[in-house]
């Protein structure tokens, strides 16, 4: 049964990949492609958050600081020295890792909400800092007015393209990469350790797991890839505004998408990210101009309903449908599927 299933799944996967690769040929309007890029970026960011928030169960409410630090450092290095964003993103990503260790080291040893509180406090602090820092020495930060990415026309080396198509393929590769990494973590010793410490820290420690160490590793991986998302955002929009890139809306959005999609699973945050971002964009498109905030209100209601009626995430709904489908085709397909928590 599993053999058939794997084959069926890989066929579905292959078809999906081909469709995604061909998408820009069908969707030719830049606006629609832009919306799709944003959806994929949210799916990517939710998957990044999921590594520390879902697998390890550490509620980070300040992941916006990692998108911000990645984006700002890369853009400042590019604007000041002309350093290619492709290289700058490693500096930004490295800085995000350092920041995650600085937040994690003192708080991961504690129980309860301390980590969540620390992430909120630090992210609020960083938004204020960014809003009030015009420049540091010769580095222009931009303050509340924001920071514009120096335009050099279409240049692959400078991560700047006039067409949306390259951005689409870049974000698609990023999304595949993070799905691959999430799957690899989930199946590895690290993944087992993260879920174990999420379920019970004392029992995990008694079984030889260095709880703080493993949380720090998960936090660093999550921070690095979140920072890359920030760099992509910066090069796509070419304008950084503190509240947008580091603010609470950025941070909480990642959490929402991952939880609504199914935190702790590999594909949940991807599904949540694409679906919710799409819904949000559609509502904004049709209702955005009518009544101030109406689209946000409706979006909030949808999130609320999903959390009430599908608390384990949309992914569970997909799994149920998939299971019913395979059961219909195969009589023995009951138990092992029903009891497997790793699912997707």
């Amino acid at each position: 049964m599993t053999g058939i299933n794997i084959n069926k799944n890989s066929v579905i996967l292959a078809v999906l990949v081909v469709l995604l690769l061909l998408l820009p040929m069908v969707v030719t309007k830049p606006y629609y492609l832009h919306v799709i890029i944003i959806c994929l970026l949210w799916a990517y960011l939710a998957s990044c958050w999921n590594i520390i928030g879902g697998f390890a169960g550490q509620l980070s409410l300040g992941h916006g600081i990692y998108t911000a630090i990645g984006a700002y450092i890369t853009v400042i290095l590019f604007n000041t020295f002309g350093l290619s964003p492709w290289l700058g993103l490693f500096v930004g990503g490295g800085a995000a890792i350092l920041l995650s260790l600085m937040i994690g080291y003192p708080t991961f040893g504690l129980r309860g909400a301390y980590y969540a509180l620390a992430t909120v406090a630090i992210s609020e602090g960083i938004v204020v800092l960014l809003n009030n820092t015009g420049s540091i020495g010769r580095f222009t930060v931009g303050g509340a007015e924001g920071l514009i990415v120096k335009s050099v026309g279409s240049s692959a080396a400078a991560f700047q393209f006039n067409s949306k198509i390259p951005y689409y393929y870049i974000v698609l590769i990023m999304l595949f990469l993070i799905i691959f990494i999430a799957k690899w973590i989930k199946e590895s010793k690290l993944g087992y350790y993260l879920v174990a410490l999420r379920e019970d820290e004392d029992a995990a420690a008694a079984m030889g797991i260095n709880v703080r160490h493993n949380k720090l590793i998960a936090g660093a991986i999550s921070a690095f890839f979140t920072a890359l998302g920030g760099v992509f955002y910066a090069m796509l929009i070419r304008y950084l505004e503190p509240n947008a890139i580091a603010g609470a809306s950025m941070s909480t959005q990642m959490v929402f998408l991952a939880i609504v999609g199914g935190s702790g699973t590999v594909l949940g945050p991807v599904i949540g990210g694409i679906l919710l971002a799409l819904i949000s964009e559609i509502i904004r498109f049709y209702l955005g101009g009518q009544l101030m905030g109406l689209h946000l209100f409706i979006y909030g209601m949808i999130v609320l309903l999903m959390i009430i009626y599908q608390p384990r995430g949309i992914i569970e709904l997909f799994e149920k449908i998939g299971r019913r489908f395979s059961r219909k085709h195969n009589d023995e397909g009951g138990r092992s599927g029903a009891e497997d928590p790793s699912g997707a």
Binding site: Y192, A203, A204, G264
Partner: peptide, 21 residues
């Protein structure tokens, strides 16, 4: 532990594998 501490969301095999790691 006196009050048992299973990793509830993992299967029996996965629970034991954590120790084996």
């Amino acid at each position: 532990f006196q009050v048992v501490k299973p990793f509830g969301k993992m299967t029996v095999l996965q629970n034991i594998m954590v120790g084996a790691f």
